[in-house]
Amino acid sequence: MINFWWIIGGVLFALLNTAAGLIWVERRMLALWQDRYGPNRAGPFGLLVVLADTIKLFFKEDWIPPFADKVVFVFAPGVVMLSVLMSFVVIPFAPGIIVADLNIGLLFFLAMSSLGVYSVVLGGWASNNKYALLGAMRGASQMISYEVFMGLALMGVVVLSGSFNLGEIVEAQRKVWFVIPQFIGFLIFLVAGVAETHRLPFDIPEAESELVAGFHSEYSGMKFGMFFIGEYLGVTLISGMLVTLYFGGWLGPAFLPPVLWFVIKTFAFIMLFILFRASMPRPRYDQLMEYGWKVLFPLSILNLMVTAAIKLWLNS
C-alpha cells in the first residue's frame, strides 16, 4: 500500500512540476523558433520565470465579476484540473508505475478527457460575457466533434491489441509500434488530441485576436492559473497517450530505464505541440468543423474498417 501512495504522490508531483515547467519551456522554445530569447532574466536561463509567474498569479486580485454566476464561475476551472489529472490515473509510465491498472483504461481516458469540455462550457457560461460565451460555444462544438473520431481512431489500436488495458496495449507493441500499422489512426488521434486540448492551431475557443481570451476572458488570478495549468496538463496527457498507444510506451533499448524512455518520448511530442503553435495559423471555425466531419470522420471509420478487415483476414 505504501508503494501505491508513493506512486500517486510521485505522479502528481511529476505532473504538476512538468505543467509548471512547461510555462518556461514553451516560451523558450517559441522564442527559439522565432529568433528571440524568451524569458532569460529571472534565474539561470530564466528558469525562475515559472516561480515569478506562479507568485504573480497567486497575488493577483482574484476577481469574480459581479454579473457572473458565482458558484459555477468558481467551479469551472476546477473541472479542467480534475478531469485531466484523473485521466493520468490509467497511464502506465513504466511496468508497475501506474496508479490504477484498469482493464478499460482507454475508455476511462476517453470519458475523463470528454469531461474536460464542461470546464470550458461552464466557465464561458458563468462569465456572463459575450466573448466568453462565444468561446464556450465554440469549445463545446469543437470538442464534441473531435471526440467522435478520436474514439474511432483509437479503436484501431484496440483491434490490433485486443485490449482496452493500456498496459497490455504497450506490451502488444513489443514487436512493432502501432504507429506503423496504425499510421492514419495516429495522425487522426494527433489532430484530435490537439483539438481536444484546444492548443494552437485549434485554439478556437480562446482565439485572442477575435474573442479577447474566449471562455476565460473574465478569469484572473489563480482561477485563470488553473485553466493555464490545465492546458499544459492536457498537452502532457495527449503526448503521454500518443506515446502509450502508438510509440510503444515505456519500451525501448535497455540502456535506459523504461520510465525515462516514456519521459523522453513524451517530451518529444510536447515539443511537437509547441512547434505546431510556432508554425501554424489558426483555421477559421467553419473550416475546422468541415475538416473534422468531412475528412477526419470518414477517414477514421475507413481506418477502423480496414484494420478490422485485415485483422479478421489474418485471424481466419
Partner: peptide, 18 residues
C-alpha cells in the same frame, strides 16, 4: 503545413534578433 513547420524548426539555428 509540413513545410512551414520544417522551416520554422530550422529557425532554431538562426541568429536571434533581440
Amino acid at each position: 503545413l509540413v513545410r512551414s513547420m520544417w522551416l520554422i524548426f530550422l529557425h532554431m539555428f538562426h541568429k536571434r534578433e533581440t
